[in-house]
């Protein structure tokens, strides 16, 4: 059996998959990879099952030693990665031999790095998922620690060398535009506040985590008062009394009573989640059908494409 022995786990590294399905009515967050795009590509590179678990490494600073040979893929934040001190590229398959030392530097541009192993990471399943929701403090569910082992579920399976085509890699530049699907209490917001929300520049606050991203910018003047608590969709934009938006993400609470002018599409949440404090964000109204079509295309691409033999492109089945 082969595995990765963790020497430095980084600031906060957690095992993540697509999250829990169907447990929110127990008050359990969905969890799952914050950046669905990078997570999905890491698995796609290795022909892993769509929902296979990866390691989500926040801000880098990760080091591990291969015990036995294994194949991995690293995607996400721009950062430098080395194997035995030699630089290697992200967004491609990587073969490690016994004793190889993998180092992922601190990321200064973006937040999240995904490390997938061929076959998917093994870890205890709970509520139909391997996600770790740190804030729930459930037993045996915490961030990665030194000397933890990252073990593949199916050892020794290898795919040919591949890399994600450049035009299909997400752009995590320092300014992101995220959609806002009007909904929930949209019509209760004043017209001027909606205009302010969709035309202003916001910056990501340092009070942002897996629960939600707080944005700072021109405060909305007169958000509607609190509402009766209702179910919160992934990507919901809450406007508390201070008028500054909070985009609720994977580990967010399941119900809440702040008014919401709408919801950010999940693929846009991925781009948002890659931003560091100070990163610039703008909202742009978008319609539900478009968001739904983009999401569907994204999922179908995973299921219905396969790698060309040269490992440089994908073709639809």
């Amino acid at each position: 059996m082969s595995w990765l022995e963790v020497i430095h786990p980084g600031v906060q590294s957690t095992v993540q998959d697509s999250g829990r399905r169907g447990y929110r009515h127990h008050g359990l967050a969905a969890g799952g990879a914050l950046d669905l795009i990078s997570f999905t590509w890491a698995n796609k590179l290795l022909d892993n099952p769509r929902h296979a678990a990866c390691l989500e490494i926040m801000l880098g600073g990760f080091r591990a030693i291969a015990q036995g040979s294994l194949q991995i893929a690293i995607t996400g934040a721009r950062t430098s990665v080395t194997v035995n001190g030699e630089p290697v590229e992200l967004w491609r398959t990587l073969n490690l031999d016994d004793g190889d030392e993998l180092t992922i530097s601190h990321s200064v541009h973006n937040r999240l790095i995904y490390l997938a192993v061929a076959g998917g990471l093994d870890s205890p399943e709970q509520f139909g998922s391997r996600t770790v929701v740190v804030r729930e403090k459930l037993e045996g569910r915490g961030p990665l620690k030194t000397v933890d082992k990252l073990v593949p579920r199916e050892p020794q399976r290898k795919v040919p060398s591949r890399e994600v085509p450049a035009h299909q890699r997400p752009d995590f530049s320092s300014e992101v535009v995220i959609g806002l699907i009007p909904g929930y209490q949209y019509s209760q917001f004043q017209r001027t506040d909606i205009l302010r929300l969709t035309t202003s520049n916001y910056t990501v606050s340092d009070q942002s985590d897996r629960m939600g991203f707080r944005l700072q910018g021109p405060a909305l003047d007169c958000p509607p008062p609190g509402i009766i608590s209702e179910g919160i969709a992934h990507g919901s934009v809450q406007i508390p009394g201070d008028g500054q938006p909070i985009v609720l993400l994977n580990d967010g609470q399941t119900i809440g009573g702040y008014p919401k002018p709408g919801v950010v599409p999940i693929l846009d949440c991925s781009r948002l989640a890659q931003q560091l404090p100070g990163g610039r964000v703008r909202f742009e109204l978008c319609d539900l059908a478009t968001a739904q079509n983009q999401r569907r295309l994204f999922e179908l691409h995973y299921q219905n494409t396969r790698w060309c033999q040269n490992g440089q492109a994908l073709e639809w089945l």
Partner: peptide, 18 residues
Amino acid sequence: LVDMVPSYTTLMVVYDPV
């Protein structure tokens, strides 16, 4: 159908958009 989240006056229904 993926999930249903009831609250005081509402029911949120989560589905598979694929």
